[in-house]
């Protein structure tokens, strides 16, 4: 097991390297002079020269990259020329709300989606299965930004049960309960689509596993259906579901961009959208890099969980 963790950690290094290269290259994709793009149209030649030098844009690409990585490792993500503060500060303030939103949505999606998937598989072709399958179809076809608006319209405006946004300061006002009230609608919106995907994949994994010879063996041993489904089938299906949950983490983190925009949630997603609007390239770069790293770590975690569940992985 220890060897496996080491091996997985060693595999993360090249992935992180690749991620950093891609994020770094994004700035070089910008047509024309990146410094001018960063500073906007009103920049003076002097500030442009200043930024060019600061970012090392006048040096060869590999050197630029090394300087950039070196700065990153010292916690220096550059300065936002729009917000007039270090990128790292802005990201620091917005990372937690995004992780809270995405995490809540993912837990919600798993808690609802996985059992529904099992139910649909065990009752294949029965009414329950058909209803779940229909719900899944609607779920995966729904644009989350539209669903968010409908929820605002219904629960926020019509029924006025829940706040519809205005969560500007995470730790400013009402405490945990207030945060929770603000969290309900966006998390539900985000969880709806992720949950639908999870139902579908859980159902598929269960159907596949239920067809296996060892399920027949379990029945031949005289075990109860409950035990056959839970201990023999579901345990094996989980091995396939865990990486899917990891993958869903990526979709939830991405989907958070829409949901944060609709509900004005003070997270990285909304920050990115406005940063793109203001051409605040360094802020975009930093935000994407941090979220991507978080995602890589989540996948590392699901990999390890999978290895704990499946002894065959440790062996190979």
């Amino acid at each position: 097991m220890g060897g496996l963790i080491l091996r997985r950690l060693a595999q993360v290094v090249p992935v992180l390297f690749g991620v950093s290269v891609v994020v770094f290259l994004v700035i070089n994709l910008i047509p024309g002079d990146p410094a001018r793009a960063i500073l906007g149209t009103f920049a003076t030649p002097a500030t442009i020269a200043d930024v060019t030098h600061q970012l090392g844009l006048d040096r060869p690409l590999p050197v630029q990259y090394l300087v950039w990585v070196d700065n990153l490792l010292h916690g220096d993500f550059g300065r936002s020329y729009i917000l007039h503060k270090p990128v790292i500060d802005e990201i620091g303030a917005r990372l937690f709300p995004t992780l809270l939103l995405a995490g809540t949505a993912l837990v919600l999606a798993s808690v609802v989606g996985v059992p529904l998937g099992i139910l649909a598989a065990v009752r294949q072709d029965a009414a329950a299965d058909r209803i779940v399958t229909l719900a899944v179809l609607v779920g995966i076809s729904t644009p989350s930004f539209w669903l968010g608006m409908l929820l605002i319209l219904w629960f926020g405006v019509r029924l006025a049960w829940l706040p519809v946004g205005g969560m500007t300061e995470m730790f400013g006002g009402g405490g945990p309960l207030d945060i929770a009230r603000h969290l309900v609608l966006p998390a539900a919106t985000l969880a709806a689509v992720a949950g639908a995907v999870l139902v579908r994949l859980t159902r598929g994994a269960m159907l596949e596993v239920l067809r296996q010879d060892y399920v027949r063996t379990a029945r031949a041993k005289g075990l109860s259906e409950r035990r056959v489904v839970v201990r023999h089938a579901f345990r094996n299906a989980v091995v396939g579901i865990v990486p899917v949950i990891g993958l869903q983490a990526g979709f939830v983190l991405g989907g958070a961009v829409y949901v944060e925009t609709v509900f004005q949630w003070p997270g990285i997603g909304r920050m990115l959208v406005s940063a793109i609007g203001t051409r605040d390239i360094l802020l975009v770069q930093g935000g994407v890099l941090v979220v991507a790293c978080a995602y890589v770590l989540i996948n590392l975690l699901t990999d390890l969980v999978q290895a704990v569940l499946d002894p065959r992985i440790v062996a190979s």
Partner: peptide
């Protein structure tokens, strides 16, 4: 490497650059 990014974020980064 491309899959190491949350799907939509990579798209945002590309749009940000282009």
């Amino acid at each position: 490497t491309l899959m190491a990014f949350p799907y939509l974020l990579l798209a945002l980064a590309i749009v940000a650059a282009l």
